[in-house]
Nucleic acid binder design. Sequence first.
DNA 1: GCAATAGTGTCTCTTAGACAGTATGAG
DNA 2: CTCATACTGTCTAAGAGACACTATTGC
Lengths: 270, 270
Amino acid sequence: MSDETQSTGRTNEEAFLAAYDPRAYTPLAVTVDVALFTIRARALCVLAVRRANPPFAGHWCLPGGFLRPDDDGRFPTLAQAAAARLVAEAGINADALEGSDAPGVHLEQLGSYGDPGRDPRMAVVSVAYLAFAPNLPDPTPGAGATEAVWMPVAQTSEIHLAFDHDQILADALARTRGKLEYTPLATAFLPGSFTIGELQAVYETVWGEKLISSDFRRKVRHAKDFLFLTGRTTDRGGDRGGPRAELFRAGPARLLYPPILAAANERLVR
Amino acid sequence: MSDETQSTGRTNEEAFLAAYDPRAYTPLAVTVDVALFTIRARALCVLAVRRANPPFAGHWCLPGGFLRPDDDGRFPTLAQAAAARLVAEAGINADALEGSDAPGVHLEQLGSYGDPGRDPRMAVVSVAYLAFAPNLPDPTPGAGATEAVWMPVAQTSEIHLAFDHDQILADALARTRGKLEYTPLATAFLPGSFTIGELQAVYETVWGEKLISSDFRRKVRHAKDFLFLTGRTTDRGGDRGGPRAELFRAGPARLLYPPILAAANERLVR
DNA sequence: GCAATAGTGTCTCTTAGACAGTATGAG
DNA sequence: CTCATACTGTCTAAGAGACACTATTGC
C-alpha cells in the first residue's frame, strides 16, 4: 500500500481523509462465495444453487453474493458475509457458526479469485470460503436463486459451474482432502458425538478410498487430543448387527500428530 | 453469487450487461500486499516500506498497492499485481517470476483481509501474497514510499506496521514455517545450486531452532524428488576449513514425502 | 445361525532420534 | 596443528501396513 497511494499528497491525515473521494476510481466489486460440503448417503456433496438472473441465468454455481454495506452503511467482515450465505441457503442457524469449537459448522477462507473477465459485468474479485457441516436438511434457494441442492461432487465434473466456480470447487476439494490428513476437521462432518466407524466413513467418502479399520482405529486413537471417549455407546448395533460402538467427541487438537495419512501412492497434492 | 445479484431482472443477458451500471453501488477498493521474505546474514528478513502519504504517513508497512486498471482499462490478475510490487520495490527482474520452476522467486496467495475499518479511507479488501527470494540487493522505495528496507522479522515485533499488516505478517510467518515441513520451498531462499549445509541454515533460520546435521542430511536426501546432485562441489571449504561440500539443485517435488518435521515439541500451528 | 461390525493383538519393515566416528582443509 | 564442517554409520524405539482373531448383536 505504499505505492499507488490514492493520495492528494497533503500531510495532514484528517484533511486528507475528508477530501478523499473513493468514487474517482474505476469501480471494482468484491463477492464472497462459499463451497459448503456435507456428506449425504455416503456421498460427498456440495451446496449448489441455480442462478435466477444474468449473467449465467439458469446455470449452477456456488452460493455467494456481493460484499456490500448493510442499511447503516457498515460492511460486514468477509467471514460474516460468508456465514450469511450459509444461513440464507443451507438452513444453518447462526448459533452454530459462532463457537468455533462447538460441533457446528467449520468455516475457513479458501482464497481469492480475480482474473480479469471472470465476471462479464465488471472487474470482480471473489473471496472464496470453504465450509463443512454435518448432515443438513434440504437447502432453500435464497434471493436470486431458483433452486438449491446438495450436489454430489462426483456429479459436478459433468456440470460446468458459472463464473470460475469450477476452479474454486476444485481448489476447495483439494484443500479438504489434504486437511483431513493433518487436522481434525473430519469431525466437522459429524454431529457432536460419533463412532470411529462413522469417522472412518468420512475419510473414505472424502478420499474415495477404502481404509483398513483396525489401522484407522489405531491411528485416530493415537493422534494426540483428537478424540475423547464420552463413556457412552450407540443405542443399538448396525443395521445388520454387530456390537454397540463407543461414542467419541472431538478433542481440542487443531493439528493431528501423528497425521492420518492417505495411502502413499495417492499422495494428495495441496 | 446467486443471491444479491445486482440485477435488473431482465432475462436477456446482453441487454442486462449493456444496462449494467457498476457505479450505482457503494465503492469498495481492493489492494494487493506482499510479504516478501529473504535471508540476510542468517536472519529472516521481510521487505518493509515507509509510507510517504496518508493514511499512516511515515509508518512502516508491507509493499502493496491498489488493484486498478492499466492505461488500456484492463485489470491485471491478482498475482500479476503482486509481482509488480516485487519488481518495483525489491529489484526482482520480471523474468525470475515467470518460470515457476526456475530458481527465481516463489509467489503464492496468502489470504484476504477485509475487516471493516482496516483502512480509514474506505472499505478496502486486501489480497495478501507471500513470496520468498534468495539474497537480494538493497531494496529501492517505489512511488509512495520514502524508504524500503530488509527488516529482520525478530525486529518487527517492536514495530507496529500500518493497517492490519502486523496480522498479515504473522500469518505469512506461520505459513512459511509450516510449509518448510512438507514442501520444498526452502530452496526458494537459495540460489540455483546450494549445499545441504546452506539448506539446513535456511531451516534453522526460519524455524529458529538448531537441527542435528546428520539427521537433517538423511531426511532431505530421502525425501523423494527434493534434491538432485549436480556432481559439482563448492570451490573451497568453509571459512574455518573443512571439506568441499556437494552442490545440489531443487528437484521437481511439489510436496515432500516424508516431510522434514520440526521438533515435535515445537509443532507448528498452521 | 449368519453376517456384518466393533475392537484387540501381532508380526515385519521402515523411519526417526540420538550420537559416535572419520575425513577434509582453511587459518 | 587445530577445529569446524562434510559426511557415514550404528543403535534403539516407535510407527505403519497387513492381517488374524475374538466378541457382539440385528435380522
